[in-house]
Amino acid sequence: MSQELAKKTVAPPPPVENFREAPPEWEPLVLAFACHYCAYAAADLAGVMRLSYAPNVRVIRMPCTGKIDHSHVLRAFERGVDGVFVAG
């Protein structure tokens, strides 16, 4: 039931695009898969230390980077993410 709901709310993937120049204001969207035990902890520490980085990174916490499947990376690109960062 709950999975069906998740499916329903998902928008269809955008059409395949042709190569074109990036507009000047363009910023990439980066998705990071971070291991709970190291990279995710490092991202937390960056906060505790009040370091600063660009806000266009989203983090998905993983129990281990070994858990990442090709399909996760492919889905991210397919759906328009510009870069995938596997950190662990």
Partner: peptide, 11 residues
């Protein structure tokens, strides 16, 4: 995948 889809739904 649901998280990825949620992240990218506005793109």
């Amino acid at each position: 995948l649901a998280m990825i889809d949620a992240l990218t739904e506005d793109i």
